[in-house]
Design a protein around this nucleic acid. Structure first.
Length: 197
DNA sequence: TGATAGATCGGCT
DNA sequence: GCCGATCTATCAG
């Protein structure tokens, strides 16, 4: 499922520097899901989503932010997992300079924030995340199953009932603080199986 | 061809 | 808690 990404390491090499972050929050998007860019079929913008899994789908939104996804479905199927927050592990100084602030908790706490901190933009769309390159994913220490929370996705209107947001419980690096009144960890109905790679 | 809503963020009331 | 910034894709006319 989408939670398989939690705990993985996002590694970025650029300008002779290595940046590393541990994924602590992500959201799944799939065909048939009205909130997904793939809902209306392939277009020039989302074609990477319909390509083979293990690649990065980057899109520009709200006129100023990039968002990074990991394509998960088999070739021809439009599904991906949005990286919403990572815990910065290496290259914090560089990230802080790009972000214009020094608070570790805010460097990569949000889809637009983490792409800015990692220097991910249009050029990274379609990048192979499996092979060691300018940007890729590596296995980290997997989290305990009971430390993964599930909730509705953030920022979507349609499909808001789907519990397809996964995050590490209690992490101070999430895009939002613990949900008030919401039993974050309580077993929400698992939607479906994702995964590839 | 024009209008509008959007997988966001940061600043101000 | 609300609003503006500013580009894109999609939908209405």
């Amino acid at each position: 499922m989408g939670s398989d990404l939690i705990g993985k390491l996002l590694i970025r090499r650029l300008q002779g520097i290595t940046l590393v972050g541990r994924v602590v929050e992500c959201e799944a998007y799939d065909e048939g899901d009205p909130a997904s860019h793939s809902f209306r079929g392939p277009t020039p913008r989302n074609e990477v989503m319909f390509g083979p899994p293990g690649h990065m789908y980057v899109y520009f939104t709200y006129g100023m932010h990039f968002c990074a996804n990991v394509v998960t479905g088999r070739d021809g199927h439009g599904s991906a997992v949005l990286l919403r927050a990572v815990q910065p592990l290496e290259g914090l100084d560089w990230m802080a300079e790009r972000r214009g602030l020094s608070d570790e908790r805010l460097l990569c706490a949000g889809p637009g924030r983490l792409t800015q901190a990692f220097g991910i933009a249009r050029a990274e769309n379609g990048a192979d995340l499996v092979r060691d390159g300018a940007v890729f994913l590596a296995k980290g220490r997997p989290p305990e199953a009971e430390s993964i929370g599930v909730s509705a996705r953030i920022g979507v209107n349609v499909g808001a009932d789907l519990p397809w947001r996964f995050f590490e419980l209690g992490s101070p690096f999430l895009s939002r603080r613990s949900m008030p009144g919401r039993g974050a960890g309580t077993g929400a109905a698992r939607g479906s199986g994702r995964r590839g790679s």
